[in-house]
Design a protein around this nucleic acid. Structure first.
Lengths: 122, 122
DNA sequence: CGCTTATTGAAATTAGCGTATCATTTGCAA
DNA sequence: TTGCAAATGATACGCTAATTTCAATAAGCG
């Protein structure tokens, strides 16, 4: 019979990259890390993994979209201004929603830190 | 003699719009609000105002860049998911920088709230 | 007023990012 | 092994945002 999705070297490589990476990756970073995977395939695979909620998008203003494994729990991000990498930041601030003006309904929030990562800080 | 910059109806209109608006505007919103101003002119004027630090950029993930008057003091933004407008949010959270991992140097941060503005909340 | 030159704006161009095409490769069920 | 549909990938295409072009307009000094 026809099972639908097939296992390919490329898809395996892409999942591996995300399972090993502890930080969100752009498509380009993904393609570079996976090796021997075309851009089109990377986009298609990522789209599929997003559909099945295995991946989530990470959007940083002015930056290309990044992707990371879903289900990491609530967290935020740190964007290094030097090496251009984005890192996860655990934890959150409690009173975030009360910043909103009265009558505004807060449904989500994002906190992005900018600066230098430990490697670039020296 | 040659003074350089000239006063034009368009530039006046653009400054007026920003002085009256209490929220960040996209180029399109600006062009619509100013009236009788071409896109190219709007981009040029905004670029100049950014250069002289009269305007600042407001970047919301996945949204076109917005601009608002500089010197408003530290604040953040609220993006309405319905009417697509972005509002200023006064105040901030203290402990933001300590979210960062050890050895990371935080130089700036951005907090973005998502939800429904007062007008759309009903 | 008259002239120089900055400014304007419609349209063409560039740039970044993502998708569609389509010939070729390949997983995998029979 | 065989056969066929899924998958791949180089490339063409599309979309949006922003910049540049260039002829026409207009600010403002003398």
């Amino acid at each position: 019979m026809n099972t639908g999705a097939r296992k390919t070297r490329q898809r395996g490589a892409i999942r591996d990259v995300f399972e090993r990476s502890e930080r969100p990756l752009t498509i380009d970073e993904l393609v570079a890390a996976a090796g021997g995977v075309g851009v089109a395939t990377a986009y298609r695979a990522v789209a599929a993994l997003l559909r099945e909620a295995w991946l989530e998008t990470v959007e940083i203003p002015g930056e290309p979209v990044r992707y990371e494994r879903a289900g990491k729990g609530h967290h935020h991000h740190f964007a290094c201004e030097k090496c251009e990498r984005v890192f996860d930041v655990d934890g959150c601030l409690e009173n975030v929603r009360r910043l909103a003006p009265p009558r505004f309904r807060v449904k989500a929030h994002a906190v992005t830190l900018y600066g230098l990562c430990s490697a670039c800080a020296r």
